[in-house]
Design a protein around this nucleic acid. Structure first.
Length: 404
DNA sequence: TCGATCACGC
DNA sequence: CTCGAACGTGATCGAA
């Protein structure tokens, strides 16, 4: 039953890393940083440490008098939340954001990962920690391979360096489709949510139709879908009108309207939230689908900030934690079957709702079946669990495909 | 050495 | 009227 041996095997197996690719990217990043910092200094009229939020804040908000005053006790906030709205009006802000992105990638990944390759195995070996998180998720450290960039194009290039263990092998990635929203559908027993998943519909577009009160055949444009997607994520995290308004860049009134119409259309979700908070107050903890507890000792605290914070945790922990339970069960079963069949293919990474395998020649079809079956049947919910598949010669060139 | 800030992932 | 997303790891700054 234990997961620990599965994790141990993954850690020992490691993953191949092409350091030439990272060295090349690091060089490019260095040149780009040079150009960006020169231009930032020119526009500032002086040299300073761009990596120092204190110095940067003083340059932007005192010397150059950009709008957007102080925010923290230590001085001006220069977080991307603050800088993002300014970047179209002030070139220096746009350059700073670019600098931050490139510098992050260079110092956290490009210049660090090659030095962590094990001299004996020639591979990268992470540590998967089971005893760290409060929800039951795994964490990964030294190096953290659960936060390899994917969002920006330059960041995604880093994934070209992650390769299967030989030229003949294939990298294979599977991920649960919307597992947390499916768990919410299961717990809330929301008729509309369950129906949407049973019919295999795009859940964010469906949500958009509901909160904007559109007919079921209405075409959903990208901005409506984006709003609905943010609302869905907000629900999972224990939503508030303030949080949603900040995330969508709209005023609080409007955010409140979205939330109200969401709860009107998905009353089961509203009930779930109320129910899980009451449960936390009564028991002092909430539980996941396999019975893991998250203690919430301050759920009835007099301080509203603390209380609201605990309530958000009460809403989110059963969802995030159950997703963690489910993928762990799948990992154990997949590992056992690979072992029983004496296959050489091995699991190499887990990224919360995603598994990555190093597939050996001749084992592809077998492994696809095994992984699909165990992931989709790991837990019986009120909605189907669906898994999506990708394969490729490295972690960048991944192509979707169907497993029947 | 360590808290604060920032940014990467889900 | 407060504060303000859930869960992590890690690089860097700068005060202690």
């Amino acid at each position: 039953m234990p997961l620990i041996s599965v994790l141990a095997k993954m850690e020992m197996r490691g993953i191949s890393l092409d350091t030439d690719i990272l060295k090349d990217l690091s060089l490019r990043a260095g040149e780009e940083l040079e150009v960006l910092s020169d231009e930032i200094y020119r526009l500032s009229g002086e040299n300073f440490n761009i990596n120092s939020p204190k110095q940067l804040g003083e340059i932007l908000f005192e010397k150059l008098k950009l709008p957007g005053g102080s925010k923290t006790k230590t001085g001006y906030s220069t977080s991307s939340n603050v800088l993002e709205p300014l970047k179209d009006h002030y070139r220096i802000v746009s350059l700073v954001l670019d600098y931050r992105e490139i510098n992050k990638l260079k110092t956290t990944y490009l210049d660090v990962l090659p030095g962590l390759i094990d001299t004996f195995t020639g591979k990268l070996h992470t540590s998967f920690n089971q005893m760290i998180t409060s929800t039951g998720r795994l964490s990964s450290s030294n190096p953290n391979l659960q936060n390899i960039p994917v969002r920006t194009e330059f960041g995604k290039l880093i994934r070209k360096a992650f390769k299967p263990s030989s030229e003949e092998n294939i990298l294979f990635a599977t991920d649960y489709s919307q597992i947390e929203l499916r768990i919410l559908a299961h717990y809330s027993d929301s008729e509309r949510l369950i129906k949407a998943f049973q019919d295999g519909r795009d859940i964010h577009s469906e949500t958009a139709r509901d909160i904007f009160e559109l007919p079921s055949d209405a075409v959903i444009d990208s901005s409506m879908r984006r709003i609905a997607k943010t609302v869905n994520f907000g629900i999972l995290y224990g939503i508030s009108d303030f949080g949603l308004s900040r995330n969508l860049g709209i005023d609080r009134k409007e955010a409140k309207k979205y939330i109200e119409s969401y709860f009107f259309k998905f009353p089961g979700v509203k009930d779930y939230i109320d129910r899980v908070i009451l449960e936390a107050r009564k028991n002092g903890y909430v539980t996941t689908i396999s019975g893991r507890k998250r203690h919430l000792n301050r759920i009835s605290d007099r301080n509203m900030n603390i209380r609201k914070g605990e309530e958000r945790i009460a809403v989110n922990a059963p969802i995030q934690g159950s997703a963690a339970d489910i993928i762990k069960l799948a990992m154990i079963q997949i590992d056992r079957e690979i072992d029983d069949r004496k296959l050489k293919t091995g699991m190499v990474l887990q990224v919360h709702d995603e598994l990555i395998f190093d597939i050996f020649p001749g084992e592809f079809d077998t492994v696809c079946r095994i992984v699909k079956t165990h992931m989709e049947k790991a837990c019986k919910l009120g909605v189907p669990l669906i898994v999506e598949f990708k394969k490729g010669i490295d972690w960048y060139h991944m192509e979707s495909f169907q497993v029947l």
